[in-house]
């Protein structure tokens, strides 16, 4: 498991990271325009309403785009090649993650591949949402 640079939550993002520790993918939705959004902020980035609330997302996503890194970030030297991806969550927002549970080869990673969230504990405070193919490894 790579030794990752870990995030430090801010007041606005604390709920996301608290949820991750409980294996819940916490997003916000705007009650005025109905749209879910990420990253966390206390107002809707589309319609600017501050009538927003947290909910737990399904954890289902599809592979929006990715690279297979052969150039390790600090802490990832023993993990190359690895997949850095942007996934589109079922609820609409996109987020960066890693794709795990599958050999990091282009033929295993077609664009729009269905994915499911999986959790990787890093510390007492931080657990990261990673994604794996929802049908299991091919």
């Amino acid at each position: 498991m790579p030794k990752r640079p870990l995030p430090q939550p801010t007041p606005e993002t604390q709920e996301f990271w608290d949820g991750a520790r409980r294996h819940e993918l916490r997003l916000q939705r705007c009650n005025a325009c109905g749209r879910a959004y990420f990253f966390p902020r206390p107002f809707c980035p589309r319609c600017a309403s501050d009538d927003v609330g947290w909910f737990t997302a399904s954890g289902k996503a599809r592979l929006y785009s990715y690279v297979i890194s052969h150039r390790p970030a600090p802490g990832f030297k023993d993990d190359v090649p690895y997949v850095i991806a942007v996934v589109e969550l079922e609820e609409g927002p996109r987020m960066m993650t890693n794709i795990v549970g599958v050999e990091p080869k282009p033929e295993n990673l077609p664009i729009d591949l269905p994915l499911q969230v999986t959790w990787e504990r890093q510390s007492d405070e931080i657990t990261l949402p990673l994604f794996e193919p929802s049908g299991g490894a091919p």
């Binding site: 995030p7 939550p9 993002t13 990253f39 785009s65 990715y66 150039r71 931080i126």
Partner: peptide
């Protein structure tokens, strides 16, 4: 580590522009 990029991108092993700028192309 409190910057947004540090929270939501850096943990996933991005190593500067070659692994971020390139992400849209596939």
């Amino acid at each position: 580590p409190q910057m947004l990029g540090s929270q939501f991108e850096s943990p996933y092993g991005v190593a500067g522009p070659p692994t971020r700028f390139t992400l849209p192309f596939l």
